[in-house]
Computed example of a mutant assay.
Amino acid sequence: MGLRKAAGLGKLGLPLGLLLCLLAQKPAGDTNTSADEADHEPVVTFVDSGLNVTEPKEVEFGPCTVTCGIGIREVILTSGCPGGESKCIVRVEECRGPTDCGWGKPISESLTSVKIPCIFVPPEDRFTYTWKMLIPDQQSLILPNDSAILEVHRDTHPVAFECDTNENDQLIASVKYTVYTTAAVTLNVAT
Protein backbone atom coordinates (compact mmCIF):
# COMPACT_ATOMS: atom_id res chain seq x y z
CA MET A 1 0.00 0.00 0.00
CA GLY A 2 1.49 3.36 -1.00
CA LEU A 3 1.86 6.38 1.28
CA ARG A 4 -0.75 8.43 -0.62
CA LYS A 5 -3.39 5.73 -0.22
CA ALA A 6 -2.56 5.31 3.48
CA ALA A 7 -2.75 9.08 4.04
CA GLY A 8 -6.23 9.13 2.43
CA LEU A 9 -7.40 6.36 4.77
CA GLY A 10 -5.97 8.25 7.74
CA LYS A 11 -8.13 11.30 6.94
CA LEU A 12 -11.27 9.15 7.01
CA GLY A 13 -10.13 6.85 9.82
CA LEU A 14 -9.45 9.54 12.43
CA PRO A 15 -12.99 11.08 12.41
CA LEU A 16 -14.52 7.60 12.21
CA GLY A 17 -12.43 6.39 15.18
CA LEU A 18 -13.40 9.44 17.26
CA LEU A 19 -17.08 8.92 16.46
CA LEU A 20 -16.96 5.27 17.52
CA CYS A 21 -15.10 6.16 20.77
CA LEU A 22 -17.73 8.79 21.63
CA LEU A 23 -20.56 6.35 20.94
CA ALA A 24 -18.95 3.66 23.11
CA GLN A 25 -18.54 5.95 26.17
CA LYS A 26 -21.24 5.94 28.84
CA PRO A 27 -22.72 9.30 29.84
CA ALA A 28 -21.38 10.72 33.11
CA GLY A 29 -23.39 9.70 36.18
CA ASP A 30 -24.87 6.61 34.49
CA THR A 31 -23.74 3.70 36.66
CA ASN A 32 -26.68 1.31 36.11
CA THR A 33 -26.29 -1.14 33.26
CA SER A 34 -28.93 -3.79 32.66
CA ALA A 35 -28.15 -7.19 31.13
CA ASP A 36 -30.07 -6.14 27.98
CA GLU A 37 -27.96 -3.00 27.54
CA ALA A 38 -24.74 -4.99 27.92
CA ASP A 39 -25.75 -7.37 25.12
CA HIS A 40 -26.46 -4.67 22.51
CA GLU A 41 -23.86 -2.68 20.66
CA PRO A 42 -24.52 0.96 19.75
CA VAL A 43 -26.34 1.26 16.45
CA VAL A 44 -24.32 3.18 13.89
CA THR A 45 -25.62 3.47 10.33
CA PHE A 46 -23.37 4.78 7.57
CA VAL A 47 -25.64 5.93 4.78
CA ASP A 48 -22.92 7.03 2.39
CA SER A 49 -19.35 5.84 1.92
CA GLY A 50 -18.32 9.25 0.50
CA LEU A 51 -17.00 12.17 2.54
CA ASN A 52 -20.27 14.18 2.41
CA VAL A 53 -22.46 12.14 4.79
CA THR A 54 -24.72 15.13 5.58
CA GLU A 55 -26.23 15.27 2.07
CA PRO A 56 -30.03 15.13 2.45
CA LYS A 57 -31.82 12.07 1.07
CA GLU A 58 -35.22 12.58 -0.55
CA VAL A 59 -37.53 9.59 -1.00
CA GLU A 60 -40.44 9.28 -3.39
CA PHE A 61 -43.01 6.45 -3.39
CA GLY A 62 -44.10 4.98 -6.72
CA PRO A 63 -47.73 4.09 -7.42
CA CYS A 64 -49.22 1.01 -5.76
CA THR A 65 -49.85 -1.87 -8.18
CA VAL A 66 -53.44 -2.23 -6.92
CA THR A 67 -56.40 0.05 -6.32
CA CYS A 68 -57.65 -2.12 -3.44
CA GLY A 69 -56.27 -4.81 -1.17
CA ILE A 70 -52.54 -5.53 -1.10
CA GLY A 71 -49.92 -4.80 -3.75
CA ILE A 72 -46.35 -3.54 -4.17
CA ARG A 73 -44.68 -0.21 -4.92
CA GLU A 74 -41.18 1.08 -5.59
CA VAL A 75 -39.39 3.38 -3.16
CA ILE A 76 -37.26 5.78 -5.21
CA LEU A 77 -34.38 7.95 -3.99
CA THR A 78 -34.41 11.34 -5.74
CA SER A 79 -31.24 12.75 -4.19
CA GLY A 80 -27.91 11.14 -3.35
CA CYS A 81 -28.01 8.26 -5.83
CA PRO A 82 -24.73 6.54 -6.68
CA GLY A 83 -23.04 7.39 -9.97
CA GLY A 84 -24.77 10.76 -10.27
CA GLU A 85 -28.13 9.24 -11.24
CA SER A 86 -31.08 11.59 -10.67
CA LYS A 87 -33.32 8.75 -9.40
CA CYS A 88 -32.65 5.22 -8.20
CA ILE A 89 -34.81 2.45 -6.73
CA VAL A 90 -33.99 1.84 -3.07
CA ARG A 91 -36.39 -1.05 -2.45
CA VAL A 92 -39.76 -2.55 -3.32
CA GLU A 93 -42.32 -2.74 -0.51
CA GLU A 94 -45.91 -3.79 0.08
CA CYS A 95 -48.66 -1.21 -0.09
CA ARG A 96 -52.34 -1.37 0.75
CA GLY A 97 -55.39 0.14 -0.88
CA PRO A 98 -58.96 0.27 0.43
CA THR A 99 -60.25 -3.11 1.63
CA ASP A 100 -63.46 -3.04 -0.43
CA CYS A 101 -62.58 -4.39 -3.87
CA GLY A 102 -66.18 -4.44 -5.11
CA TRP A 103 -67.17 -7.03 -7.73
CA GLY A 104 -64.48 -9.22 -9.25
CA LYS A 105 -64.20 -11.37 -12.37
CA PRO A 106 -63.69 -15.16 -12.26
CA ILE A 107 -60.30 -16.55 -13.29
CA SER A 108 -61.95 -19.30 -15.32
CA GLU A 109 -65.48 -20.17 -16.42
CA SER A 110 -67.19 -23.05 -18.17
CA LEU A 111 -70.85 -23.86 -18.74
CA THR A 112 -70.89 -25.96 -15.56
CA SER A 113 -68.50 -24.26 -13.12
CA VAL A 114 -66.59 -21.09 -12.21
CA LYS A 115 -63.28 -20.53 -10.37
CA ILE A 116 -63.19 -17.34 -8.29
CA PRO A 117 -60.13 -16.02 -6.39
CA CYS A 118 -59.65 -14.07 -3.18
CA ILE A 119 -57.33 -11.06 -3.18
CA PHE A 120 -53.75 -11.99 -2.17
CA VAL A 121 -50.06 -11.68 -3.01
CA PRO A 122 -47.61 -14.59 -2.80
CA PRO A 123 -47.11 -16.50 -0.62
CA GLU A 124 -50.78 -17.37 -0.57
CA ASP A 125 -50.59 -19.30 2.73
CA ARG A 126 -49.64 -16.11 4.58
CA PHE A 127 -53.31 -15.07 4.64
CA THR A 128 -56.54 -16.58 5.92
CA TYR A 129 -59.63 -16.60 3.72
CA THR A 130 -63.31 -16.54 4.63
CA TRP A 131 -65.78 -17.41 1.85
CA LYS A 132 -69.43 -16.41 2.25
CA MET A 133 -72.54 -17.04 0.19
CA LEU A 134 -74.53 -13.80 0.13
CA ILE A 135 -78.26 -14.35 0.62
CA PRO A 136 -80.61 -11.39 0.01
CA ASP A 137 -82.29 -10.07 3.20
CA GLN A 138 -80.53 -12.70 5.36
CA GLN A 139 -77.24 -13.21 7.13
CA SER A 140 -74.40 -14.51 4.92
CA LEU A 141 -73.67 -18.24 4.99
CA ILE A 142 -69.99 -18.90 5.82
CA LEU A 143 -68.60 -21.70 3.64
CA PRO A 144 -66.17 -24.35 4.94
CA ASN A 145 -63.63 -23.56 2.17
CA ASP A 146 -60.60 -21.62 3.47
CA SER A 147 -58.45 -21.63 0.33
CA ALA A 148 -57.62 -18.67 -1.92
CA ILE A 149 -59.63 -20.06 -4.86
CA LEU A 150 -63.17 -21.40 -4.76
CA GLU A 151 -64.65 -23.56 -7.52
CA VAL A 152 -68.42 -23.19 -7.74
CA HIS A 153 -70.84 -25.29 -9.83
CA ARG A 154 -73.53 -23.26 -11.50
CA ASP A 155 -76.98 -23.47 -9.89
CA THR A 156 -80.53 -22.95 -11.15
CA HIS A 157 -80.40 -19.32 -9.99
CA PRO A 158 -77.57 -16.74 -9.76
CA VAL A 159 -75.59 -16.85 -6.51
CA ALA A 160 -73.36 -14.13 -5.01
CA PHE A 161 -70.18 -14.97 -3.11
CA GLU A 162 -67.76 -12.86 -1.08
CA CYS A 163 -64.21 -13.58 0.04
CA ASP A 164 -62.49 -11.75 2.91
CA THR A 165 -58.70 -11.89 3.01
CA ASN A 166 -57.21 -11.45 6.49
CA GLU A 167 -53.69 -11.17 7.86
CA ASN A 168 -53.16 -11.37 11.64
CA ASP A 169 -56.92 -10.98 12.16
CA GLN A 170 -56.95 -7.72 10.16
CA LEU A 171 -59.09 -7.40 7.02
CA ILE A 172 -56.85 -6.80 4.00
CA ALA A 173 -59.37 -7.10 1.16
CA SER A 174 -62.92 -8.16 0.37
CA VAL A 175 -64.18 -9.09 -3.10
CA LYS A 176 -67.61 -10.24 -4.37
CA TYR A 177 -68.63 -12.40 -7.34
CA THR A 178 -71.89 -13.31 -9.02
CA VAL A 179 -72.06 -16.83 -10.45
CA TYR A 180 -74.75 -16.95 -13.15
CA THR A 181 -76.80 -19.97 -14.20
CA THR A 182 -75.84 -22.17 -17.15
CA ALA A 183 -78.95 -20.92 -19.01
CA ALA A 184 -77.94 -17.26 -18.50
CA VAL A 185 -74.39 -17.94 -19.71
CA THR A 186 -75.67 -19.86 -22.76
CA LEU A 187 -78.12 -17.06 -23.57
CA ASN A 188 -75.38 -14.41 -23.19
CA VAL A 189 -73.01 -16.35 -25.50
CA ALA A 190 -75.76 -16.75 -28.13
CA THR A 191 -76.44 -12.99 -28.34
Rank of each mutant, 00 (worst) to 15 (best):
R96G: 06
I72Y: 12
I72G: 11
P98H: 06
C95V: 01
P82G: 14
C64I: 02
F127I: 03
P117M: 08
T112L: 14
E109P: 11
M133D: 12
C118K: 01
L77F: 07
T65G: 14
T112E: 15
Y129C: 03
P63W: 07
L77T: 08
W103M: 14
T78R: 07
C68W: 00
I116R: 07
E124C: 02
D125W: 00
E93I: 11
K87D: 03
I119M: 10
T65L: 10
P106L: 07
L111V: 15
G83N: 10
P82Q: 13
P82N: 13
G69I: 00
C64E: 02
C68E: 00
E74L: 07
R73L: 12
L77N: 11
C64K: 01
C88E: 02
E93V: 12
P123I: 00
K115I: 02
E85I: 05
C88H: 01
R91L: 11
G97N: 13
E94G: 05
E85C: 08
T65R: 07
P117C: 11
I76N: 08
S86K: 11
C64H: 02
T65A: 13
T67D: 14
V92G: 14
C88Q: 03
T78Y: 05
E93A: 14
P122G: 09
I72M: 11
P82I: 09
E124Y: 01
L77D: 09
T128K: 01
S108M: 10
K87H: 06
T112P: 10
E94H: 06
K87N: 05
G69S: 04
C64G: 04
I89C: 06
V92F: 14
P98E: 08
K115F: 03
